[in-house]
Design a protein around this nucleic acid. Structure first.
Length: 850
RNA sequence: GCGAAAGUGGCGGAAUUGGCAGACGCACCAGACUUAGGAUCUGGCGGGGAAACCCAUGGGGGUUCGAGUCCCCCCUUUCGCACCA
């Protein structure tokens, strides 16, 4: 062998994610309109939306997961010929900016915009395909002026109002929280910080006006997870019942002379043996005004109730009560019953007062036993046979499936019928009526903080509360404001802001210094995406009408009753003001699972955090994205394993090497030259072709159905494994160049939603001149996916005994014949009688013997 | 306490409609290539057994020719709700 002739080593080109991704990243940077939705498109529209992030500083893996799902879908829809709207923005008002400002001495605006710049760069580096021309940044006046505009409209319609009331106060946030932001008695942002109650003047939005519709329309949201619908149903908490007035026999104080109670079981009212008031009920204040001893006892009850609320376990409170010594008249029995104050009665539900029916309510029973109150039986099991003797039920007897006794003219009625009749009776007599109560309360949106939308209201000594004129919007949030945590709204310390002129009288007026809850920003942002630069209206109705409703919304389940109920409310309000036509913002909702590592949620304190930057640097964006989709199905909790992402990187490298090796022979030119000479395919070639089409089907089906992208990726891996197994056949020339080329081409297309960088690189390596971005999704051909021969398991009495290989279209009788003729089967059924043979076509044969 | 979801190899997880349990990946083992390998390729990999076979989807019962899948009871975990009158 001549020395100078070097051995030709076929060195596979190494998959260099950084090189490939940098190259495409730079190309994509050049073209801002790459992922732009088309104006005046004839294609069907598709609006895919992921929840916009709070710009906290950097993306976390949860974002990567969320956006990888959305981006895969967007890319799939583009490739399937849809006009896709896929926007992104920043939920950029809110407390952390202020806290960071205090900690780092950086103005909130600067801190926020810097974070946005960083996170946007991260998103671009991850390869997410957003239409950045529609970017929405909620902390900029171009956006928040429309929050103010909406507020004025709400005020006009009486849907925004000011009220002094007890509100939730987070001592760490130094501001008020909406009911939805209180989780088990604690602040949603500070899970170890109990919420306090403070009496404050606040702006509220009348979401309760839509309570009924918000509840009813949940049934129409077929594309939403049941879990979310259930959570919203519970939150809205609709309850049908009756209000009944118990007369106190003379005015007690300013609060009046009757106690109005709410009950869902008015049928049990003849068994009511006391009335129980919430300790904070206004009548209690009247009753205790001249009775310091009673006052002290009530204060004790209030303290107990607060404490229970603060530890978030009001359910476990030890029931206590105190007898006021007063009596109220039951309007049905016309008997007086004692009035008590009890710590288990909540002022913020119903009327803050109940009638206590110990015989038919567990809580009342427990209370009555403790204080020796009268227990009067008024409901008994409904007898099937009228002659049957009435059995005394075990107490408390709480079923609705009974009938009334000891109930005057209503005795003998069934419970449900009695509820209706008795409500009517009360209404006719003027001491009550049927009613519906909701747990949902109006949305308190005032925040005593700086970094939010100024509420566009003025206080004039002469004209009172006056809205800012529409033409004077936006009310600009001033900069250079001292934001220390001394309490009180920071804006109140800025005279240039506070001092204004009343638009009505021209006299001096004081500006509202509270800002809006940031959930206002996110309640309608997705409409702004459709027309992001409109400076006359929040968005053009017609344009929004084209895109809405959102076809697919994707985000975390933690917003199930915050953002998702507020934005449903906002949509209904906008519909009523004629701005939109849709009743609901999103047709389909998907809630992805959390990411955990080492058995816990990633957190700095546990030191189990994996950052996107780190993953991109080490493995590349494609690997990071694909791993979040491969590790498990998108709706399950994802258990992060570093070795798992390595496996994905290995797979992508395998794909790359294969194409790098075979692309030169598979270019478009070579394909054309070869395809004309192709004859019928050899079995090795058919196998590749079959696998390809099966893979196309599996991936396509999942995009349209259950979104188990983990199995999609697995299917593509199987295809690649098959290609590696065919290397010998390729070397022998058993695989036509045209088929090999087509397979690689489709492989690139199949990978595009999950690993766009590599897919683009492969596409280019294969000599494709057009962009991959909107290349048509590969078409599944059932004829090509079909198996010529299949292996069928043969069971005897349900136990696997053999496998037979038969032509795929062989008839049932023949399959049966071959199964019975199989040697192993014969041995298994020898000496036994065949009772039945079950044939599942194409699947299995089961021979039943005795 | 109420409601929902889940429980499958050493690990993450497949099994879409009741039809071959463990796809795919990780880890591990063996071999090939190699100066070397933490690269790559090939093969193996639930448990028991020499094998034939047997056992196995949290536990126990049931329905069925056939059950991870359906039904009943129980256990565990996660999530949501929790005096809502």
């Amino acid at each position: 062998m001549p020395q100078e002739e070097k051995t030709v080593v076929i060195r596979d080109e190494r998959y260099d994610a950084q090189r490939i991704e940098t190259k495409w990243f730079e190309r994509w940077q050049q073209d801002e309109s790459l992922y732009a939705a088309e104006p005046d498109s004839t294609k069907p529209k598709y609006y895919v939306l992921e929840m916009l992030p709070y710009p906290s500083g950097a993306l976390h893996m949860g974002h990567v997961r969320n956006y990888s799902i959305g981006d895969a879908l967007a890319r799939y829809m583009w490739m399937n010929g849809y006009n896709v709207l896929h926007p992104m923005g920043w939920d950029s008002f809110g407390l952390p900016a202020e806290n960071a400002a205090i900690a780092n001495n950086t103005p909130p605006r600067e801190w926020t915009l810097r974070n946005i710049a960083n996170m946007k760069a991260q998103m671009k580096r991850l390869g997410f395909g957003y239409d950045w021309s529609r970017e929405v940044t909620t902390c900029l006046p171009e956006y928040y002026r429309w929050n103010q505009w909406f507020f004025l409209k709400l005020f006009e319609k009486g849907l925004a109002y000011r009220k002094k009331s007890k509100v939730n106060w987070c001592p760490k946030c130094c501001t008020v929280l909406a009911n939805e932001q209180v989780v088990a008695g604690n602040c949603w942002r500070h899970e170890d910080t109990p919420v306090e109650q403070r009496e404050l003047e606040q702006w509220f939005l009348r979401i309760t006006q839509y309570a009924e519709e918000l509840l009813r329309d949940l049934d129409r949201l077929k594309g939403w997870p049941d879990k979310v619908a259930t959570m919203q149903r519970n939150w809205i908490g609709r309850s049908e019942g009756a209000l009944v007035d118990f007369d106190l026999g003379g005015t007690v104080g300013p609060a009046g002379s009757t106690i109005s109670v709410f009950t869902t079981r008015v049928d049990t009212i003849y068994g009511a043996t006391s009335v129980q008031l919430a300790p904070e009920h206004p009548l209690v204040a009247d009753m205790t005004a001249k009775d310091p001893e009673l006052r002290a006892k009530v204060d004790q009850l209030i303290a107990e109730q607060r404490k229970a609320k603060e530890i978030g376990d009001i359910g476990a409170i030890e029931k206590h009560g105190v007898n006021t010594g007063r009596f109220a008249r039951n309007p049905f029995t016309e008997q007086p019953v004692p009035v008590w104050v009890a710590n288990y009665i909540l002022m913020d539900y119903g009327t803050g007062a109940i009638m206590s029916v110990p015989a038919h309510d567990e809580r009342d029973y427990e209370f009555a036993k403790k204080y020796n109150l009268e227990i009067r039986l008024v409901i008994v099991p409904r007898p099937d046979d009228p002659d049957e003797t009435v059995v005394e039920p075990a107490l408390p007897f709480t079923t609705l499936n009974g009938s009334l006794v000891n109930s005057g003219p209503f005795s003998g009625l069934d419970c449900e019928e009695a509820i209706q009749k008795m409500s009517e009776h009360a209404e006719k007599k003027g001491f009550g009526k049927a009613t519906v109560t909701f747990r949902l309360k109006d949305w308190g949106i005032s925040r005593q903080r700086y970094w939010g939308t100024p509420i566009p209201m003025l206080y004039c000594e002469k004209d009172g509360i006056v809205p800012v004129a529409e033409k004077d919007l936006p009310v600009i949030l001033p900069e250079q404001v001292d934001i220390t945590l001394t309490g009180g709204s920071p804006l109140g310390r800025v005279p240039e802001f506070v001092n204004a002129t009343c638009p009505k009288c021209g006299g001096p007026a004081r500006r509202e210094t509270d800002t809006m809850d940031t959930f206002v920003d996110s309640s309608w942002y997705f409409y702004r995406y459709t027309d992001a630069h409109n400076d006359r209206v929040p968005f053009d109705s017609k344009t929004a009408g084209y895109w809405f409703p959102i076809d697919q919304y994707i985000g975390g389940v933690e917003h199930a009753i915050l953002h998702l109920i507020y934005s449903r409310f906002w949509t209904k309000f906008m519909r009523d003001m004629g701005l939109v036509k849709n009743d609901e913002p999103a047709e389909r909702l998907f809630t992805q699972g959390m990411i955990i590592k080492d058995g816990a949620k990633m957190s700095k304190s546990l030191g189990n955090v994996v950052t996107p930057d780190e993953m991109v640097a080490r493995y590349g964006a494609d690997s990071a994205r694909m791993y979040t989709l491969f590790a498990t199905s998108p709706d399950s909790e994802l258990d992060w394993q570093d070795s798992g992402i390595e496996g994905i990187q290995r797979f992508l490298a395998r794909v790359y090497r294969f194409v790098a090796r075979h692309a030169p022979n598979s270019s478009a030119q070579a394909r054309r030259a070869a395809s004309s000479s192709d004859g019928p395919l050899l079995p090795e070639a058919r196998q590749i072709q079959r696998k390809l089409h099966k893979t196309i089907k599996r991936v396509s089906d999942d995009f349209r159905g259950r979104w188990h992208f983990n199995t999609c990726v697995a299917a593509i891996m199987e295809l690649v494994n098959e290609l590696y197994a065919a290397e010998d056949a390729i070397a022998k020339g058993a695989i036509p160049v045209s088929l090999l080329a087509e397979t690689q081409r489709d492989l690139a297309l199949l990978l595009a939603p999950f690993a766009p960088y590599l897919a683009h690189e492969l596409w280019e390596m294969l000599g494709e001149p057009e962009s991959l971005l909107r290349a048509p999704w590969p078409k599944y051909d059932p004829a090509l996916a079909k198996e010529e021969e299949i292996e069928i398991p043969v069971q005897v009495n349900g136990k696997l005994r053999s496998r037979i290989t038969v032509p795929a279209d062989l008839g049932g009788d023949e399959v049966k014949g071959r199964a019975l003729a199989d040697e192993k089967v014969k041995a298994a059924i020898a000496g036994k009688q065949v009772v039945n043979v079950i044939i599942v076509p194409g699947k299995l044969v089961n021979i039943v013997v005795r």
